[in-house]
Design a protein around this nucleic acid. Sequence first.
DNA 1: GTTACTAGGTTAAAAAAGCAACTCGGTTAC
DNA 2: GTAACCGAGTTGCTTTTTTAACCTAGTAAC
Lengths: 198, 198
Amino acid sequence: MSESTGLRARKKERTRDAIGDAAVSLFLERGFDRVSVNDIAAAAEISKPTLFRYFPTKEDLVLYRFADHQGEAARVVRDRKSGIKPVTALHRHFRAGLDRYDPVTGLSDHPEVVAFHRLVFTTPSLAGRLTRYQLEDEEALADALGEGIQARLLAAQVLAVQRVLARTNWQKIADGRTAHDVHPEAVADADQAFNQLP
Amino acid sequence: MSESTGLRARKKERTRDAIGDAAVSLFLERGFDRVSVNDIAAAAEISKPTLFRYFPTKEDLVLYRFADHQGEAARVVRDRKSGIKPVTALHRHFRAGLDRYDPVTGLSDHPEVVAFHRLVFTTPSLAGRLTRYQLEDEEALADALGEGIQARLLAAQVLAVQRVLARTNWQKIADGRTAHDVHPEAVADADQAFNQLP
DNA sequence: GTTACTAGGTTAAAAAAGCAACTCGGTTAC
DNA sequence: GTAACCGAGTTGCTTTTTTAACCTAGTAAC
C-alpha cells in the first residue's frame, strides 16, 4: 500500500523516461551527433525547453542511466552492517551486481545494453562526461570512508578497479561471448582485484 | 504538407479522447451511475478539474460522440452542390452513412457500438440530454434551410425521420442480426422515408 | 571575409494541468 | 431531525508545459 505517488510525480517520471528512452533509441540508431535535440523532443512529443528542464545537456540524455547510480558506492559504505570493512561491503555489492547481470558491471549481454555501452565509450564527449560523473562518485565515496588522504586514495582505487572490471567484462561480451559464459571469469577478476586493495 | 497540428493541440485532442474512452469503457462495464467522475479521472490519469475543463457535465462524457456530429445536417445542406434539393442532399448523405455502416445511422454491429447505444437509450439522463442535442441540431438545420415556418417544419421532420431510422436499425441489430444482413432493409426504409418528405 | 544556416541552450509570457479545499443537493445512520 | 457522508461541479493557487523568439558558436557558401 501507499504507492500513492501522486499524479504529478507519476507523470513527471514517465515524461523523463519517455525522453530518455526516445533519446537513447535514436542515438543507437543513428549515432550521438547525427541526432539533434529537436529530433528527440519531437520523438518524445515534448517541447525543447521541456527537454532541457529534465536534462541539463544533450550528454545527460545518455548518461542519466549512470547518474541513477550516482553515489551508490558511498551509500553501500554508509549502510554496511557493523563489523564489515568498507572494501568488503563494496566487494560483495559488486559481486551481487555480477550475479544479477546488472548492466553497470558490464556483464550484460542484452544487445541494447551492449550497444549502449559502445555508444558511450566511443563517443568522446560522452566518455568525458562519464568521467566527470565518476569523479563526483569518487568524492562521495571518499567522504563516506572518512577524512584525510587515506580515504581519498582508497576511494580512487576502488572506483578505478570497478571501472576496469566493468570495461573488461563489457569487452569480452562485445567480442561475442555470453554473459553466462563470462560470469566465472568476472567473479574471479573481481575477487582478485578487491582482495588486493588495502 | 502542413499536418502541423502543433504539439499543444495534438495533446489536447489525445487527452480528450483518453478521457472519453476511459469514461465510455467504464460506463459500459458498470453502468452510468455506478461510475463516479473520480473513477473516470483516475482511469484517464487526469485530475477532476481537468476532466471538467474538457467535458462540462458527466453526461457529456458519453454524448461527445454525438456532439462531434453536431450541425452535420446543416452543413450538408449548406455545402450541397447547386441544383440539388436540400432533402435530396440529406437523403444521399444518410445513404452514404449506411453504406459505410456509420454508427450514427444505427447500422453498426460492432459490439461496442451496440452496447454504447443501449447505454444511451436506457439511461434516462442520457436520453434526455441527447434529445437536447438533437434540438440544437434541428435549429441549425432550420437556419440552413431558410426562414419561416416551412424551414422549421422540414427540419423537424428530417431529424425525426433520421432518429426513427437509426433507432430501427439499431433495434434489429440489438436483436442479433448483422449489419450486412440489415443493410438492404435499412436502405429501403430510408428511401421510403426521405421520399415521402415534402 | 561576410553571410547564412545549423544546433545547443535560454528566456518570457501564456496556456494548461494538478492540488486541495470548497459548495450544494441527496442518502444513509442513528 | 440532525449529523455524517458521497458525488457532481467549482474555485484559487501553484507547478508544468508550450510557444516563439532569442543568444551563441561553429561551419558551409561564395
